[in-house]
Write a protein that binds this DNA or RNA. Structure first.
Lengths: 203, 203
DNA sequence: CCGTTAACGGCACCCGAGTTCCTTTAAGCT
DNA sequence: AGCTTAAAGGAACTCGGGTGCCGTTAACGG
């Protein structure tokens, strides 16, 4: 065998998959702060040493988990109407955050990002990918002249998610379908008013 | 002395103040996850036992710190124009979050809320108080007929903050004055469009 | 199929956060 | 001023998360 070769196949991949799944389970159950790598190793039926060697810290493990999550992107909607597309996006986000497992996972992952720069980077990449998936909805709306030319598509998508995350983390207000609807409508109204065009003012 | 009397005066109050200040310092330096109560005690020049007895956990200490922060509310703007009031609010939030000390403190406190129910409750009360301070801006705009009757004032204020917190925690995009401006304009545009009136549809 | 070695696994050790127990200080009442 | 006792302080102890060491397994190349 060539000296210094990496071995991502077979066992290593199996271990990684088992550990990441166990980590997600543990995060959902205990949350980020009470996560014990030894416990993760036990759940994954993997040596404690292995987890410490490959991931080192809780934040490092979460960062890898995020990279894994980023690879599975859910397809965007394409209803032919901006407001319907945005509503679909808002409901997808809302349902994800409300889901006990997914919601807890997202909270944990966001927490990790505030503690560790690698996790933060992974999180930013994750959202960049998610947003890129949905920007075509906005770009098509611009072409249909539903929105002013030069509208920043990514900013519109972010504006849909922001109020939902605000409810999840800060205000604690109910995260229901009505909230999702309002988030979509708010972003659409702001976009139509030209808030997200570069021409719009620093004034 | 009466049996069972509580003693909030003198020394106890001094200890509480010193510990809360030390806790804030430590949170800014290390962040929530690497916070050590023994370190807080050392900074506050207070017995380690005292900190453990009165606050017990990191999250409990942060919850108390938040209760303390909630008491100092900064006065709202009153420019006579909705968009200017909202812009003032957005810039206040933006500057707070960008400030190295305040920003780190907010991040830590939000993290604590995801880990501990007392901290979460304290955070919700904190934001409820901050929002209540600013809702009159929106109510006055309704009276001036800048906004439709029945507009949910709190929802408008939340809509201003949400994109800024989204940048702070999730996307990692720059949190500059332009972002603050857009947040204020977006909330105003959505409010004018009637997105935050109860009449507006679940449809 | 075989040799090399990257990667995993188990065990013993260490260290410091958190607890316990007791002593000392001073807040608050008379 | 004096007494009572809440509350703080100090020091010793525990115990489990994290580390180091070394033997074992199995991926990859020939």
């Amino acid at each position: 065998m060539t000296v210094g070769a990496i071995r991502p196949g077979g066992r290593t991949a199996r271990v990684r998959a088992a550990v990441l799944r166990a980590a997600a389970d543990a995060l959902v159950e205990h949350g980020f702060d009470r996560l014990d790598l030894a416990d993760v190793a036990r759940r994954a039926e993997v040596g404690k040493t292995t987890v410490y060697r490959r991931w080192g810290t809780v934040a490092g493990l979460v960062a890898d988990l995020l990279a894994d999550m980023a690879e599975q992107s859910s397809p965007r909607a394409d209803t032919g109407s901006l407001i319907e597309d945005l509503r679909a996006n808002a409901r997808l986000v809302q349902r994800t955050l409300v889901d006990p497992r997914q919601g807890a996972l997202f909270r944990a992952v966001i927490v990790a990002a505030t503690c560790d720069s690698r996790a933060a980077e992974a999180l930013h990449r994750f959202y960049a990918a998610r947003i890129a998936e949905w920007t075509p909805c906005v770009e098509q709306a611009v072409q249909r002249a539903e929105l002013p030319a030069g509208t920043d598509a990514a900013e519109v998508i972010r504006a849909v998610s922001a109020p939902l995350y605000y409810r999840l983390l800060m205000s604690g207000d109910p995260l229901d379908e009505a909230a999702a609807s309002r988030a979509a409508e708010g972003a659409a109204a702001a976009a139509r008013a030209g808030v997200y065009t570069p021409a719009n003012g620093r004034n």
